[in-house]
Amino acid sequence: MTTHRVARPLAFGLALTTLVGSFVALELWRDRVYGEPAPGDAVLYVRSGDAVRRLSLSFTPLVADLYWIRAVQYYGDMRLSRSPNKRYDLLYPLLDITTSLDPDFTVAYRFGSIFLAESYPGGAGRPDLAVVLLQKGFRAAPTRWRYLQDIGFVYYWWVGDYQEAARWFDKGADIPGAPWWLRSLAAVTKAQGGDRRGSRQLWQSLRDSADNEWLRNNAAFRLEQLDALDVIDRLTTIVSAFKARTGEYPASWDTLVRAGLLRAQPLDPTGSPYVLDPATGRVGLAADSPLNPLPVGAQAGQMALQPAR
């Protein structure tokens, strides 16, 4: 009787646990064979943000969050996709829905514009839509000079239209509460658009004004790349001087150190050593440096935007 009383609940508990185990196992198995269901799939039935807002009743903020997660997920999936004809065509509708549901969704405008503006295949390659999205954000919150700064940035970095970029920086600087440097950024952009000094100032302004970690890290990363470019330029000068003196390129950094031209083996801001090609004298980043790939020349628009590490 006593064993009965213990054995039955025990057997029942065991049976229940087995059932839970079975359905979890089945789910794991199915996900393994057929893949996990992607959120939102590749289908977006309702593409109008206003329509979704009406459908979402009083859950708008929550639904906005969900769409934002979907947008991030969609962007991430596409970015990682190896498909040669991958498309980002749902990215803008997803961001548009998110920001229509929650017009105050700052992150969705600022990150979203980066996703949109970045050149294909790393991003959608649609700086035009990035600008449309940011303008929508600015209409919703006309005191946010950051959206205008971002629009200027899109023109500067992805379109390469420095006059237009400067115009937007200026426009941002007009807004009460905008920082003083936005005006000087506009001036520098107008005068020296596209050179490294202008770039440095742009990224510095972004880093110092960033109100979240991701944007700050991204800007810091760009600045490290610019630093690395400066160092590479200086090292190239040293290598050329050595060649001029000895008639041949140095075999390694040690050669230069022994010649008293360098104090030690030079390291990039991430701690990876710079590489020196003894045959051509070309100086560059180590192949495994996280700073790869560096922007090429002044046309920074060709540079792929890496997510911050």
Binding site: F12, A15, L19, F23, R30, Y34
Partner: peptide, 24 residues
């Protein structure tokens, strides 16, 4: 068909679990 079978199997086991627990 494999996907359909697995999904149905998953549903059946989950239903069995809920009914057993509910009846208990």
């Amino acid at each position: 068909p494999g996907y359909v079978a697995m999904t149905i199997g998953y549903g059946a086991v989950y239903v069995a679990f809920l009914l057993a627990a509910g009846a208990h």
